[in-house]
Amino acid sequence: MKFLLNTGRTTSQCSNLSMKNSFEYQHVVSACSMNPVDMMILGLEDDNHIILSRNGVMVIVYITEEEEVDRGTLFLPAGPYANFLLDFDTHGTGVPDFKWVEVSVSITTLDIIPVWKLMAACGGVRYEG
């Protein structure tokens, strides 16, 4: 099912900015808000894991119910999970499309991967110091 993904700041995301490798930060920035009617149609409940995919790239996040999110849209706090799906095309402005990108949603039982694994998927190496 296709959705429009919106990203933005939240207080809990900003309060964990200095601990980006912590479970708390991972939990906050992988919380994807969805309208309860859409959740019912997809057969989802709070904390269920979903795959967001776009242009062959996918990322696993979990669902939270949010009545204020419009039907057909999703809200994900700005962070590595949201940015993993973004294109680099800036249309000559220097700014990628952070808002309202189309993503596909599917249900999964796979675990959410931590931030360092996302970076490892980009070619990075885990810093364990």
Binding site: V57, A78, N83, M119
Partner: peptide, 17 residues
């Protein structure tokens, strides 16, 4: 700054290289 968390994936891939 933390471009790993704020830049799109292709940029992070190049930073790793």
């Amino acid at each position: 700054s933390d471009p790993g968390a704020i830049l799109p994936r292709p940029c992070c891939q190049h930073l790793a290289q």
